[in-house]
């Protein structure tokens, strides 16, 4: 597997200026030599820079013709590195650090692994592929960028830690699974697709959802008044997902919208809602 490793040259101070790094993607590196990759340009603020000015590059001299075979490794302080893996269709990006905003924006295929935290808009408008985040994620995970009413429309996102607000906003399809807790407005405007939260949510889950499924295995402290109790289920069967063997309370909503969304909260942890 042809691999390229990019280690960011350690900045003297904490980086302030974002780097628009949509060029870091297997689709852009394919059929290029290491030297050619080094010449690809990124914008740091209003300055255009070559990748080699920002990164130490190492790895295979030539990355081959197959996007799917390419593996990109990123290391260093990447907190201001934005849009890594944008629109990628295949291959792998492994990030051994925390990463800036818009990682995997509009990605269509392949795999991104973030061994750290991801900033806001991770996996925004994602169409396919997989995004794994071992740390926490910011706001708008798997959501839509500003103004777009069609958010994530396919693929899978898996976060081991917690996420902040508006996770899965305007989501159209796909699966988001969160290991710990989620912020407010989980699955806002959800249209289709599944969001599973293993931890707790404080409030406003499923606001204005018009379809899709939200599953909360922990506590939902407060339910929106525009959700209607349906029934309790002993176990939960979801499309393309293993059966969750625990009892859930089923709600329908959001009645402020088209009432076709389903919200499941774990029965034993949410007696206060009944």
């Amino acid at each position: 597997m042809p691999t390229v490793k990019l280690v960011i040259k350690e900045p003297l101070e904490k980086p302030k200026i974002p780097i628009e790094a949509e060029i870091i993607s297997p689709d852009k590196f394919v059929k290029k030599t290491l030297a050619e990759i080094g010449e690809l340009s990124v914008w740091k603020g209003n300055r255009e820079m070559a990748l080699r000015e920002l990164f130490h590059l190492s790895g295979d001299d030539f990355l081959g013709d197959e996007i799917a075979d390419i593996s990109i490794l990123l290391e260093g302080n990447l907190a201001k590195l934005k849009r890594v893996g944008q629109q990628m269709t295949g291959g792998t990006i492994i990030i051994n650090s925390s990463i800036g905003m818009h990682v995997g924006f509009q990605m269509k295929g392949g795999r991104i692994v973030v061994n750290g935290d991801a900033d806001d808009f991770a996996g925004a408008n994602m169409k396919g592929g997989e995004l794994h985040i071992t740390g926490n994620a910011g706001h708008y995970l798997g959501g839509s960028v500003r103004g777009d009413w069609r958010g994530m429309s396919g693929g899978k996102i898996h976060v081991k830690g917690s996420v902040k607000n508006e996770c899965g906003v305007w989501m159209r399809n796909g699966l988001i699974e969160i290991g710990k807790n989620a912020g407010i407005f989980l699955g806002m405007h959800l249209h289709r697709g599944i969001i599973i939260v293993n931890g707790n949510v404080i409030e406003r889950a499923g606001a204005e959802m018009t379809g899709g499924i939200i599953v909360i295995k922990g506590t939902l402290k407060e339910l929106l008044p525009s959700f209607e109790f349906q029934r309790t289920v002993p176990e939960l069967t979801l499309p393309d997902y293993e059966v969750i063997k625990q009892p859930f309370i089923e709600y329908k909503g959001d009645f402020a919208e088209k009432k076709q969304g389903l919200l499941y909260v774990a029965k034993e942890k949410n007696a206060h809602l009944l």
Partner: peptide
């Protein structure tokens, strides 16, 4: 189909 179920913005 392309629009939100509650209509476009």
């Amino acid at each position: 189909a392309w629009s939100p179920r509650s209509g476009s913005k």
